[in-house]
Simulated scan of single mutants.
Amino acid sequence: MTDTLTAPARSRRPTLAEQSTEFRLAVMRVARRLRQERADTDISATQLAALGWITTEGPITLGRIAELERVTPPSMNRTVNWLVGAGYATREASPDDGRKVLLRATPEGAAIIRETRRRRDAWIAKRYTALTPDERETLAKATTILRRLADQ
């Protein structure tokens, strides 16, 4: 009779479901940790994402931000209202079409985005230095794949 404690473990390839679960958990842990690296803890992740688009792509319409974030315009309107009320963004009429409203980051809003990005980049860079060149190359390839997954 074979002792189950000393029997060699059978190696098997994880199933697609198991791989998907492990991948999801790993991505969520990294994302959760990165979300902690931000300049203003009073701003929500959704508000920060919208402010990021406004800062990077602005002036920009509310509809375009909603499209980029894959949410409804009414939902994004609540987010943008908070950003405007907090002094992180402004609304202005489009010079091309007076019916269209454009959003622009205020200097305070842009500073929050710059500092948050700096902190997040520093967090990642610190961890990258502990990786081997092969591991960094693997992550570079994975980045392309992750972008493709996110855009589907």
Rank of each mutant, 00 (worst) to 15 (best):
121 D>Y: 08
123 W>L: 13
106 T>K: 01
125 A>E: 07
116 T>M: 04
129 T>N: 07
102 L>W: 03
135 E>T: 13
107 P>R: 00
116 T>S: 07
124 I>N: 02
130 A>C: 11
125 A>W: 04
116 T>N: 03
134 D>K: 10
109 G>E: 00
125 A>N: 09
122 A>N: 11
127 R>K: 09
137 E>T: 13
114 R>V: 15
102 L>Y: 04
134 D>H: 06
104 R>T: 13
119 R>V: 12
131 L>N: 09
132 T>A: 04
123 W>Q: 10
116 T>V: 08
114 R>Y: 10
105 A>I: 05
109 G>K: 00
109 G>A: 03
105 A>T: 05
134 D>C: 08
125 A>I: 14
104 R>C: 11
127 R>M: 09
103 L>G: 06
133 P>A: 02
134 D>M: 07
105 A>Y: 02
112 I>A: 03
120 R>M: 15
111 A>N: 05
131 L>K: 08
106 T>Y: 01
118 R>H: 07
102 L>E: 06
112 I>R: 00
136 R>M: 11
115 E>D: 05
105 A>D: 02
130 A>E: 14
113 I>A: 02
123 W>C: 11
112 I>M: 04
101 V>M: 05
109 G>Q: 00
111 A>F: 03
112 I>L: 07
133 P>K: 01
119 R>I: 11
117 R>G: 10
132 T>R: 03
111 A>V: 10
117 R>P: 11
120 R>E: 14
131 L>I: 14
119 R>P: 08
102 L>V: 13
137 E>A: 15
112 I>G: 02
132 T>M: 03
117 R>W: 07
